[in-house]
């Protein structure tokens, strides 16, 4: 067990030395979470836009469900994906458990409801404003959805960043389906959890510093995006 100050100086040394193991973990984390965000947007944005502009019986129930799914605990998602992908599960034959793909699936399940619910809100507001003008111009539903997604692009990028922030910071889902295997499925959060319990505080702290930096960068991007959008009256 290192003392506190020692752990900190070791951590900074690790971060600034460009340690290969550390880098591998960071790269895998980003790869997994960015892929998951990409997939979630591909599913969640059209779903959100569709929910925002359509009216059908049971729409209210669907909205409640999607919003409730936003708060899914990562460990529960991890467990469900684990059961689905384990040998006894329906997708066991894919042999995906304990691979980066399994982690991507778990994070996609975790953040798709976030993307869908937040984008429904964003697009509903815009649709309320545009709907009558679009009707007057005889805009087809397909064109309307494209136009709404495009005009809401700054807000939707913020939504995507929120999803990314949640994905990159969660540990419960990826540790269950990934297993924190060194050089294979070890990501920042699982490494922190494991190294802390093993007493290697330097690596854990180093990863913690990187995670905090990522969170800062994401927040800065969100704020810049908001400012740009307002400056050009696209907000």
């Amino acid at each position: 067990m290192q003392d506190f100050g020692q752990a900190f100086s070791l951590a900074f040394a690790l971060v600034f030395s460009g340690d290969a193991d550390l880098l591998e973990i960071i790269v895998l984390s980003l790869k997994v979470s960015l892929t998951a965000v990409g997939l979630s947007c591909a599913i969640g944005l059209p779903l959100g836009a569709g929910l925002a502009i359509s009216r059908f019986p049971g729409r209210g129930v669907v909205l409640v469900v999607v919003n409730a799914l936003m708060g899914l605990p990562p460990v529960v998602v991890g467990l469900m994906v684990y059961l689905t992908l384990s040998n006894a599960g329906p997708f066991g034959w894919l042999q995906l458990l304990y691979s980066p793909s399994a982690m991507i699936i778990a994070q996609t399940v975790l953040i798709t409801p976030i993307i869908a619910a937040l984008s429904t809100q964003v697009i509903s507001d815009l649709h309320a404003e545009y709907a009558e003008q679009f009707r007057s111009l005889s805009v087809s539903p397909r064109h309307a959805v494209t136009a709404l997604l495009w005009d809401a692009r700054f807000s939707l990028m913020t939504v995507a960043l929120a999803g990314f922030g949640r994905a990159v910071a969660e540990v419960g889902a990826v540790i269950i389906v990934g297993g924190n295997i060194n050089h294979l499925t070890r990501v920042m959060t699982t490494a922190i959890a494991l190294e802390t319990s093993k007493g290697d505080l330097a690596l854990a702290l180093a990863l913690g510093i990187v995670l905090m930096t990522i969170a800062l960068v994401v927040t800065a991007m969100v704020m810049t995006m908001r400012r740009t959008a307002t400056a050009y009256a696209y907000a």
Binding site: Y130, E132, S136, L137, S138, D151, Y234
Partner: peptide
């Protein structure tokens, strides 16, 4: 019908412009 409306245009009391 839609065909009629396509041949009509309306400027609303409060104009709604796209964010473009």
């Amino acid at each position: 019908n839609d065909d009629h409306r396509r041949r009509q245009a309306m400027v609303f009391q409060t104009p709604v412009l796209l964010r473009r």
